[in-house]
Design a protein around this nucleic acid. Structure first.
Lengths: 192, 192, 192, 192
DNA sequence: AATGAATGAGGATTCATTCAT
DNA sequence: GATGAATGAATCCTCATTCAT
């Protein structure tokens, strides 16, 4: 009886291992061997499935962005008002599944990768555009400068992330979200 | 008697070359040889003066942070009011000498370095603390939550930087500064 | 399924190549590349199997000492009296497989290695202790100072070796053995 | 006023530094820089005086052998009988100035050097010949096999040295000398 | 005389990648 | 499908040696 359907399992294991290994090492120079080992297979097999290290990195990025997206969807699903939708997006970004050291470190490394790797750049731009349009759409009913405010909130989210990467005066996810939300309140003139 | 006094010249050349090479390559994995070549010397001499690649990277970071600091000093020197001082700090951050692709890329890479390298982490924390205290000091007379607002502005600065690194809808330095300043206006309730 | 079971073959080839290369070069500063080439593989593979040059040197030492030990065992196996056992040990030391320029040179180099490398020192001490206890055990029935005499014989063996290393008035193995044995005769007062 | 007569002082300092550095490092791969530093000058000057590392090593060897020779002369000068002369030679070899770890280690390293370096080989052969002829001359009146016995004693001296290099059950110089002398007693049938 | 400056050559080590089984 | 085997290319680093002053 041949093992069937192994491929998707293997690929997924490699994707998670890529993120985890980069996050743990804090660097893109993790070796294919390390990743493959963490995923429980030989580096040769990793190459077999992905063709090379670059594609593994891309797959890792896609995996990470997929998680972000899923997180946002989950949070937003329960929002009933535009305002609740924005809060949901912000809260999703700082959900514990995203806002933990290894994930932050991986995310930061992917930004670096995007400096030289067009595909990585493309993926991050997609993420940024999606974040912007989500925020702007939700802001439209309640803000007079939805795009400007969307940019400010997006920048703050990224900024809080990068500051978190230094672990200095690090906030928990909820406090980080609260700070961004409170800034948003001020921006759109909400009284709370 | 030998040719003398080359050390400071060579060291400075290597520091600038380190920043430039990392900025251009978008990666910390530039080779010592590349850096040395850009600085116009052999890699052996680079090792002679710095002892190793790590120390060159640290020196590069210190050089970059020194530029930031100098930039801030220059801008702040002409400020006569607290408010002008804050604007000067923000404008300094987005001055063209700082806010250009290579510098941003280098800065991003140093954040990555800080994920695993204690000295790099220490240096960046110093920079963050200094930025915070500069901002908070200037905000004290004009804001009711100077520390909170300083954090928000600092996060925005970093966030705008990292978004600039993707070159998507990239702003010029002045516009970037304007956006941060306008957010600050809203935060402290200034009418302009 | 991959080609399998190469490891012991490669390791053994590297061990012999290490001894041979050090013997031929007369120096520990042979390169991993030279050793690997002699063993018919790339230096990368040598590192793969041994982890580093140091471990290759240690493996080479163990290989050499193993040969010595095996040689002694072979010779001693046929000895029926204590006296014959001692002669066998001495003869084993000067057997042609041990007492040839390359082996002597390797052995000398390993003594040098032991000056700074604790593992090398440990290995040579084991060899010395074993030689001493072999000699002393065999001497006990026929000498009144078995330990003292064992030391003298051991020193002579090493001394003849090191003098052989200069190839000046070099003896053949049998003559060298004869000289040591005749000294032993005098020491224990044997009439022959 | 030019410094005159500096050359012989510098050369001597380098010679002693060479021996000391090799002895301390337990290896011939000490760098010219280390040696020069110990001798209180730049490596460039060391090259200036000796032409290259090899010649510095040779000079170091000559220096060491010169010490040995001087030691022997001193001891022998007071000997009034052939027997006393032999004892003096042996005692000289184990005098504390010779029989200390660093010197032994240097001496061992020079033996290694002689494996590949003809000049080093030539120097050590001279030493051996001189030792042999000294011993044989003194033995002639009191031994029936002066050359054979000279060889045995010479081998023992070298053997005790090399065993000392492992620092296992290391003897002091006087005990080492006593062991060799007592062996000699047995060899030539002296009653003491 | 003396040395800081400078480098070319070389060595240990690592790693992505390929291949044979 | 899966992996041990194998390597070429690259990287950091060291060092003897030379040179200009």
């Amino acid at each position: 009886m041949p093992k069937i359907g192994q491929e998707p399992i293997r690929r997924e294991a490699l994707i998670q291992a890529t993120i985890a290994e980069i996050g743990a090492a804090g660097s893109l120079s993790v070796t294919v061997g390390q990743i493959a080992k963490r995923a429980g297979m030989s580096s040769a097999l990793a190459h077999h499935y992905f063709g090379g290290k670059d594609q593994m990195l891309h797959a890792g990025m896609r995996g990470l962005l997929r998680s972000f997206t899923a997180q946002v969807k989950t949070h937003v699903a329960q929002a009933r008002t535009p305002r609740a939708r924005i809060d949901a997006i912000i809260n999703a970004s700082f959900d514990n599944t995203c806002f933990e050291p290894q994930i932050i470190s991986a995310w930061l490394n992917f930004y670096v990768l995007a400096q030289k790797d067009p595909e990585a750049q493309r993926l991050l731009r997609i993420y940024q555009r999606r974040l912007h349009s989500n925020l702007a759409a939700a802001l439209t009913p309640i803000s007079q400068q939805p795009h400007e405010h969307a940019e400010i909130i997006a920048a703050m989210i990224d900024g809080v992330y990068i500051r978190q990467a230094l672990k200095e005066g690090a906030l928990g996810g909820p406090q980080a979200a609260a700070r961004v939300i409170s800034t948003l309140d001020t921006l759109i003139g909400t009284d709370r």
